[in-house]
Simulated scan of single mutants.
Amino acid sequence: MGTSRNFASLVARVILGVIFIFHGWQKLHTNGISATEAFFKSLDIPFPKAAAWYSALVEFGGGILLILGVLMPLVSLLLIADMIGAIFYAHIDKGFWNADGGYELPLALIAGLVAVGLAETGRTGADGYFTSRRRNRV
């Protein structure tokens, strides 16, 4: 993978990772799991306590893994599932625009996750580093 693609992958992963880390941190510490659970319950999300923990941990931990470039396809799928839930439970009835509480942001995050989840991390991510080391041994 070329240097510009390595850099593009890194920039996309870092931006997405920071966004998810902040949202996960908010659920874990700023608002807290109890408040997140109560909010999820108000949205009629099934199993709101489990959903709150899933969302908080996958966003916080997934954000870190995105930045590091670890397990990209899996992390991207877990975060996409989280964003699909956000769209259908919290945003779909508010329309498209983010300013109105709509699904614009989670949809854009899904697009970014698809891109980084399918792309190789190259030398800027752990997945690419370990893959290239395995190839060099053979």
Rank of each mutant, 00 (worst) to 15 (best):
Asp44Tyr: 14
Ile45Thr: 11
Ile45Val: 15
Pro46Val: 01
Pro48Trp: 00
Pro48Lys: 02
Ala50Lys: 00
Ala51Gly: 11
Ala52Arg: 03
Trp53Ile: 15
Trp53Thr: 01
Ala56Gln: 14
Leu57Arg: 06
Leu57Cys: 13
Val58His: 06
Val58Met: 12
Val58Gly: 11
Glu59Lys: 00
Gly61Pro: 00
Gly62Trp: 02
Gly62Ile: 01
Gly63Asp: 10
Gly63Asn: 07
Gly63Ile: 06
Leu65Pro: 01
Leu65Thr: 08
Leu65His: 05
Leu65Asn: 05
Leu66Ser: 09
Leu66Ala: 04
Ile67Cys: 07
Ile67Glu: 13
Ile67Tyr: 04
Leu68Val: 08
Gly69Asn: 07
Gly69Ser: 01
Val70Pro: 10
Val70Asn: 02
Leu71Gly: 05
Leu71Val: 06
Leu71Cys: 04
Leu71Asn: 03
Met72Ile: 00
Leu74Ile: 15
Leu74Phe: 13
Val75Met: 06
Val75Phe: 07
Leu78Arg: 03
Leu79Met: 05
Leu79Thr: 00
Ile80Val: 13
Ile80Asp: 14
Ala81Ser: 13
Ala81Thr: 08
Asp82Asn: 15
Asp82Ser: 11
Asp82Ala: 10
Ile84His: 06
Ile84Gly: 02
Gly85Glu: 10
Ala86Gly: 12
Ile87Tyr: 06
Ile87Arg: 01
Phe88Thr: 10
Tyr89Asp: 09
Tyr89Gln: 07
His91Phe: 05
His91Pro: 09
Ile92Thr: 06
Asp93Cys: 05
Asp93Trp: 02
Gly95Arg: 04
Phe96Trp: 13
Trp97Gln: 12
Ala99Cys: 05
Ala99Ile: 05
Asp100Met: 15
Asp100Trp: 14
Asp100Arg: 15
Gly101Ser: 08
Tyr103Glu: 03
Tyr103Gln: 01
Glu104Met: 10
Glu104Asp: 11
Glu104Gln: 07
Leu105Ile: 15
Pro106Asp: 12
Pro106Leu: 08
Pro106Val: 11
Leu107Lys: 10
Leu107Gly: 07
Leu107Val: 08
Ala108His: 08
Leu109Tyr: 09
Leu109Arg: 02
Leu109His: 01
Ile110Ala: 10
Ala111Arg: 02
Gly112Val: 06
Gly112Asp: 15
Val114Ile: 15
Val114Phe: 14
Val114Leu: 15
Ala115Thr: 12
Ala115Trp: 14
Val116Met: 05
Val116Pro: 06
Leu118His: 01
Leu118Thr: 09
Ala119Asp: 02
Ala119Gln: 01
Ala119Glu: 01
Glu120Asn: 13
Gly122Phe: 06
Gly122Tyr: 01
